[in-house]
Amino acid sequence: MEKIKVEICVGTTCFVLGASALQDIEMFLPEELKDKVEITGANCLGLCKNSHFGDAPFVRINESIIVSQATIDSVINEIKKLVK
């Protein structure tokens, strides 16, 4: 199976609004997910523009799913849905 691609936005807006706390998400991944996902940093996904900064930080999964106001927990939950 192809790995699930998780991109954590580390653009400045996302970083300031909480992405700095997502940096160690890898440590919190449950065992069974560890080799199923690939986590990378992304440079501004372009979702924070205009008045949308209120929903930062953003995480993008498999190029299509957007997690807004992302926390370690909400991102992991999103990943779990894909594995099922």
Binding site: T12, V16, K49, F53
Partner: peptide, 14 residues
Amino acid sequence: LGALFAALEINLSE
């Protein structure tokens, strides 16, 4: 400072 950069949509990585 972080809020100021975000308000002006300055993305440091770019």
